[in-house]
Design a protein around this nucleic acid. Structure first.
Lengths: 142, 142
DNA sequence: ACCTAGATGAGAACGATTCTAAACTACAAC
DNA sequence: GTTGTAGTTTAGAATCGTTCTCATCTAGGT
């Protein structure tokens, strides 16, 4: 039996209670093509849930992360972003406009733990590549 | 002529005005063995500069970053850290206690820019390895 | 239909950082 | 040395993302 892909079943399979807000938030992330911030989610769902609080969005995305349905990515200083792509992957970040692009490593990283951290147990890693995205490059006054 | 290593000359060579606060902040970072936060700097210099404002620390570390004398590293959510080690290097982060360790890659990363980001101009990259540091591993109740 | 653990909502609180505006000072020019 | 001024510092307010509190509400098992 394959795991179903609609929000309700994903929530149930993860052992989370199904509430309208959670369903909407997860569905939003499933439909959203990119890396949404809490505010993206919050403002996009204002129409359907005028009384939903930001706390609910924060609580929900945190729980979705915990059960592995979404991945939190925090690049630089700004707001955290939430990604429905939970496969291990990395990001290109535009230092001009903040745009974010996924990328995959051709081969896994070999980390040589330094002496002073001997015994460090690696859980995972994330590569943040900074640079200028094609759009911003075009807009450069040259 | 080699570039001198004391704070005053470093500031001058970088074209920054030499103020007592700047000198003290840069000297603190030169002496500090690790990754200091703005608060570390601010509280450590309270004795010598009781009236120094946090803004000054923020302004100064920002300028020092801009001229390449220090490197800002932002891992996860907490406060930014500032590193006098400006060589390209990466970090192990303990997910329990937040401890930070430097590490170097054995070979440079090969980044394959995805199609949707064709033309992305890579400036630099930073690898954040998450895991459990040896100290926290020992303290685990098993 | 009922009960209760868990979820929601409104707003306060928080920590990191940035902004503002007035007073001060490094340093180049005289 | 004195002066002028652009750049710096200061205190505190403001901002932003996020977490907390607690009273109300509800999903879902019985």
């Amino acid at each position: 039996m394959q795991a179903p892909k609609d929000a309700v079943h994903l929530l149930k399979n993860a052992g989370l209670r199904v509430t309208p807000q959670r369903e909407a938030i997860l569905q939003f992330l499933l439909d959203y093509n990119g890396h949404a911030t809490v505010d993206d989610i919050y403002t996009s769902l204002q129409d359907r849930f005028p009384s939903m609080s930001v706390s609910t969005v924060y609580n929900t995305v945190k729980q979705l992360s915990q059960v592995g349905l979404v991945k939190e990515i925090g690049v630089g200083d700004g707001a955290s972003r939430f990604d429905i792509n939970v496969e291990p992957h990395h990001h290109l970040v535009c230092t001009r406009c903040g745009a974010l692009f996924d990328f995959y490593l051709e081969e896994p990283l070999r980390v040589s733990v330094p002496r002073e951290a001997e015994g460090f147990e690696v859980e995972d890693y994330h590569v943040e590549v900074r640079g200028i995205c094609p759009r911003c490059k075009k807009q450069q006054v040259s």
